[in-house]
Design a protein around this nucleic acid. Structure first.
Lengths: 216, 216
DNA sequence: CACGAACCGTACCGTACGGTACGCATTTGG
DNA sequence: CCAAATGCGTACCGTACGGTACGGTTCGTG
């Protein structure tokens, strides 16, 4: 029953509470600590209910990803007229948000979980994580740079390529390093500023470059 | 330093063969397939020998990382005088090599392994993987861009920051996507060229930019 | 109030893994 | 030629996990 109703409807409040506890266990102790018995104990529910609600352990993991993705909603603000200053500002805000999301312990734990199982289950969890967790971010950034192009502030032919360039400038190898256990940066704002400046130097039109030169 | 840093000094040939089989098991079936019994069976050795040589399962995993890192030796070519064309060429070769290494199935499997265990063992494997597997690449790139600066072709204040920018331009989110199970790119050369062009546009001096404009 | 559905807590089962012990074959060195 | 060492194959042990079954309890509903 629930197997196909996963995407259309949310979970019940009780199930959300269970998923919350499961995420907590995962963040605290990694995948090894995420046992069905442990989840049942932490959430004060029975294993039988777990299997009734989520099917099996993989269903529970998928539900955790779906639930977490549904919690992090990003707002799309569009229609606003962009000038060089506001474009720069929005890009920096996006960069900071992106770094903050990627450095979040729940995000790191879920990525570790999906990566750890990615060559066992045919990367089902990996696909789910990319689709559910990444699409909003992609859309937000794409909308932003598209608006920048419409306002005559950015110049590019392939929007996807420009977005990937922006992503690489912001994140570099930081995500993988954090996934491997390294602590994040101390100053994300500086990194965000640097990345946006480089991006504008690569893809900005003369108007933006003039503004950048003035502020520096 | 490459004279005495012989890779065979770490383990005996027999142990290398065992580690090779262990890597093969890991690549084929993921971490779940990497059992001590499975390794012993695949390598035609006894579990007792495994524990004698590597201590415990974690020791085996560490040995696998060390062994694989010792296999991939990158050569440092320095002292050569750089001109705009050769700098561009070396950067593109570095980018292609980097993408090829990151997309290798053994590299992906080891990264997945270390990431999957990174919040359980205090990221011991993660640190090992970064130190053993990354240092040579970092050194090679750092040497290259330092040589570019000495030749008056690159301009930057923080070499580490410039290198991270280059890395982000080359890899973007491709590494994480592959770790999550997505197939790699179809054309790595194009990605390498694009990344190097962007890097030179950001950090190149007038000589390099003139050369780039001429070739385009 | 009564009845059934949902659910909790716990006990249980089969399996599979990490790690150890033992018997036997092969090598090595004097 | 013998003895010590090394190592292979197998059997074994304790444990812990995924998944199932069951008795007792709460709660919504006619």
């Amino acid at each position: 029953m629930l197997s196909e109703a996963g995407q259309s409807s949310e979970f019940s409040p009780r199930q959300n509470a269970v998923l919350e506890q499961a995420l907590r266990l995962l963040v605290d102790g990694g995948e090894k600590a995420l046992t069905t018995s442990g989840v049942a104990r932490a959430a004060n529910c029975s294993k039988e209910s777990l299997y009734k609600w989520f099917g099996d352990r993989d269903g529970l993991l998928s539900a955790m990803i779906t639930y977490q993705a549904s919690k992090v909603r990003t707002f799309e603000r569009n229609g606003e007229r962009l000038n060089p200053t506001s474009l720069h500002e929005h890009l920096v805000i996006f960069a900071r948000d992106l770094l903050e999301v990627l450095a979040g312990d729940v995000s790191l734990a879920l990525n570790r979980l999906a990566i750890g199982q990615s060559n066992r289950d045919g990367s089902k969890l990996g696909k789910l994580l990319l689709e559910r967790g990444r699409r909003q971010i992609d859309r937000r950034a794409s909308g932003l740079i598209d608006a920048g192009k419409r306002a005559g502030l950015l110049r590019f032919t392939d929007a996807d390529e420009a977005y990937h360039t922006l992503y690489g400038l912001i994140v570099s190898d930081l995500h993988v390093r954090m996934l491997l256990g390294e602590p994040g940066l101390k100053d994300t704002s500086r990194q965000a500023e640097k990345a946006v400046s480089a991006f504008l130097k690569l893809y900005g039109t003369e108007k933006v470059l003039a503004e950048a030169a003035a502020t520096v």
